[in-house]
Design a protein around this nucleic acid. Sequence first.
DNA 1: GCGACAG
DNA 2: ATCTTGTCGC
Length: 244
Amino acid sequence: MEQPIVESEALAQEQKTLSNMVIIPDAGYFPKPGDVFVALDIQYQGDDAHVAGDVWAWPKEHLGTYAGLITVTVPYVPSYFCFREGPPLLALVRRLSKECKILPKFLVIDGHGIAHPRKFGVACWLGIALNLPTIGCAKDTLIHYDALPEKQRGQTREVLLNQEPVGYIVSTQDDTRPIYVSPGHLVSLADSAKIALELAGNYRIPDPIRNADHAAREHAKGINDGTWKDLGTLEPILPWWKEK
DNA sequence: GCGACAG
DNA sequence: ATCTTGTCGC
């Protein structure tokens, strides 16, 4: 009911500062065949974050799914999502790297990139933290837009922030409501939409994110249908980004 | 003042 | 995100 509005000013300033580190090139990273990438999602049970990562080789070779548990302490506040969800996502990627030797070339995140009021969604946060290309795919938008694209797979429409394009509304299936895609770091605007579309199979949500969602959900419920591997408890992330 | 608001 | 019944559809 009550949100910590008091802190918003400081957090907003921090996002503005961090957003200066974000790089959205005209021609940036675009996956090559065989490039390993990971899609990430989280399910919450109170402050228990059940994090999952779905690993693929570009474009469509599924390599495996992993899930783990970590406690979060930051509350969810709309548009400050990165401070809550960023650290657990980082914890999983680090674990995949150190224990599973999975070193992704880019990441797909359930949330926004620069299609955000201060151009700093969770995909930007993670991209900067890992210095990796990232894109954000969200089910809803934080930014107003004029009109939706046609509900026909492949249709897109720009999302504008102060006249400036910051992302795309993407129809991933016919007769289905679209998703919202934007680059987080090191990926161009147009390529973020191309990548998301390429990853969308027969569902609205791109398959890698869907798989991560599935695993995170089962991990939270304490069941496992055999499609993912349990990594147990993840190592907490130290707040180095606050120090300067 | 009121409503809207990624997950 | 999560709390929840029934219902429609592949």
